[in-house]
Simulated assay, not measured.
Amino acid sequence: MTAGIDTPDRRGRTGLDRQGRDLTGNPRVRILDVEVLSCDWYVLRKTTFDYRHSDGHWSREQRETHDRGDGATVLLHNTARRTVLLTRQFRLPAYVNGHPDGMLLETAAGLLDDESPEKAIRREAAEETGHTIGAAEHVFDVYMSPGSVTERLHFFAAPYESADFSGGGGGIAAEGEDITTVELPFSEALAMVRDGRIADAKTIMLLQWAALDGPFRPS
């Protein structure tokens, strides 16, 4: 008996080896086997499949996919003051891979956890920044690292005001979160993208959207 397959894993899941076996949308792909390598919290799978190349020949391939679930993120902005509200928190993978201290500036974000994307970003904004947001604008949905990670991230933007601050923020201490809120002039945030002080992909994408098509686009 294997946790996550025959018996529940620590998150109560079973049948994790069935994910992706029944895909039929691409006739050039034949799924042969799915093996669960790890399901401690997220799920790491190795999938074996046959792939028909453009010249017609078939090859047998194997790929590992990291399934952490889908997520959502929101850019909080104040157009009157021309500011954005970001978060700062420690990210071990970035620290391991060359970031000076692992403390990344980011838009508020989190996993959906069976919620709708908009409900999830409202929860995350409240948990991380202490702000209750009003009308949220859906921007786009993006596969952030499609070569290895299954996650699709839903992007939103929403205005914020000082009066929206309901207290709290800082993240969920029980989950090890220790998040600070950083308010920046929008122009400074863009400068930080240019010089590398903001190095988080989702944050860069939302800031660039805000400058080109969003609340800070040219008149």
Rank of each mutant, 00 (worst) to 15 (best):
P93M: 10
H66W: 15
G56M: 01
R88M: 04
D55V: 01
E61F: 07
W58R: 10
H66V: 12
L105E: 04
Q62H: 10
R68N: 08
A109N: 13
R91Q: 15
L76G: 00
R88A: 07
Q62L: 10
D101N: 07
L105G: 02
Y51E: 07
E106G: 00
Q89F: 09
A94H: 13
P93A: 11
A94K: 10
T65W: 14
K46T: 01
L76H: 00
L104M: 08
L105I: 05
D50T: 10
S59D: 15
H66Y: 15
D67M: 09
F90D: 02
R81N: 11
Y51Q: 06
R68H: 11
S54P: 03
R82Y: 08
P93C: 11
T47Q: 04
H77C: 07
L76C: 03
L85E: 02
Y95G: 02
T48S: 14
T47Y: 00
V96L: 15
W58A: 07
T73S: 12
V84L: 06
T73N: 13
A108K: 07
R81P: 03
E64V: 06
R60P: 07
S59P: 08
A108C: 12
R52I: 03
D101G: 04
Q89E: 12
A109H: 13
N78T: 02
L104P: 00
F90I: 01
K46Q: 06
Y95P: 01
K46F: 00
Y51P: 01
D67C: 05
D70F: 01
D55A: 11
T83G: 06
R52C: 09
T48C: 11
L92G: 01
R63N: 12
L86F: 06
R45N: 05
K46C: 05
G71S: 15
V96W: 15
V84I: 03
T47I: 09
A109K: 13
T87Y: 02
L86S: 02
M103D: 10
